[in-house]
């Protein structure tokens, strides 16, 4: 029983990261109806931002690490929007080309960072107030607690922003129908800037915690493929769906790795994704979207 509870706790902590990443995917998809495969590269660059602040500037608190990551994450995300996507949207390019462009950005940035920084791991040493909390035989690491709590706070703030603010309403309107939102006087380019900035923010927070949990290296963003699966399971374009999908996937993967074998983990993850798409084509909480990329 203890092991089971321990695995659930571990799964929720991993799910928190997936959820945050999946929200970044879902936001872009909800507005522009394409999957931003450059998200992994943005996450990785943001993690290097945190590394720069903590290692080079010697500011080793969690807040300074997160700030460094957010600055870089938002800049790279906005640069990606400006350089790789906006011009394609102006040309009324198919969403398929946007997705291919995103893949190109991902590979380009990853290779550029490999050349610039080498493939070596870099340890992100951020001081935490405590190490492990024990409840009997159940152990919860401080990093898990902080990553889960901060992820939930960010998701909550994001929800309030989208539901209660003027810009949030504009984002929702654009997500519902971008062309009509434009005709109604909403500046879609400004909204896209806000959305990519938020996406960069979620990538930065995820990147910082992933850098702390694992390390900072050029292929760190590869894990964002899990966020894509989470997003599909929860419902592409649905923010609550993305969060739910992230937690489902995190717990599912942990259970399979712990009780069966990690060899079967991706088999199960993708089987669940396929099953969801077969029986719930819009994901668990997705709205009526007819096609998904």
């Amino acid at each position: 029983m203890n092991l089971f509870v321990q695995q659930v706790v571990t799964g929720l902590s991993i799910g928190g990261i997936y959820a945050l990443l999946a929200v970044g995917y879902a936001l872009i998809y909800s507005i522009f109806k394409f999957t931003n495969f450059a998200f992994g590269a943005i996450l990785m660059c943001a993690a290097y931002g945190a590394y720069f602040v903590t290692h080079t500037l010697k500011m080793t608190s969690l807040v300074s690490g997160l700030l460094g990551a957010v600055v870089i994450g938002v800049i790279v995300s906005l640069a990606t929007e400006l350089l790789a996507y906006r011009s394609l949207r102006r040309l009324k390019a198919s969403r398929l080309f946007l997705m291919i462009s995103a893949m190109g950005v991902n590979i380009f940035v990853q290779n550029l960072m490999t050349i610039m920084m080498s493939a070596n791991l870099r340890s992100l040493d951020i001081k935490m107030p405590f190490n492990v909390i024990r409840f009997g035989k159940i152990r919860i690491g401080s990093l898990d607690i902080f990553s889960l709590v901060i992820s939930l706070i960010v998701l909550g703030v994001l929800w309030i922003f989208i539901e209660k603010t003027k810009h949030g309403i504009a984002i929702r309107a654009s997500a519902h129908d971008t062309d009509t939102a434009g005709l109604m006087g909403i500046n879609v380019n400004k909204i896209s800037f806000i959305v990519f900035a938020i996406s960069g923010l979620t990538a930065a927070i995820s990147g910082t915690f992933m850098g702390m949990k694992y390390a900072v290296y050029p292929t760190l963003g590869a894990i964002s493929s899990k966020a894509f699966i989470s997003s599909v399971i929860g419902g592409l374009g649905s923010l609550p769906g993305a969060v739910l999908g992230g937690f489902i996937l995190g717990v599912l993967e942990t259970m399979i790795s712990g009780y069966i074998s990690s060899s079967f983990r991706d088999l199960f993850s993708f089987s669940v994704m396929i099953a969801v798409l077969v029986f719930l084509p819009n994901g668990i909480l997705g709205s009526g979207i007819n096609d998904k990329l």
Partner: peptide, 20 residues
């Protein structure tokens, strides 16, 4: 005897089982 895949970065599930 537990396993992982070469693309993995997450080992806590296996480590919990090993401790158990």
């Amino acid at each position: 005897s537990l396993s992982y895949q070469s693309t993995d970065v997450e080992f806590r599930s296996q480590l919990s089982a090993i401790a158990d």
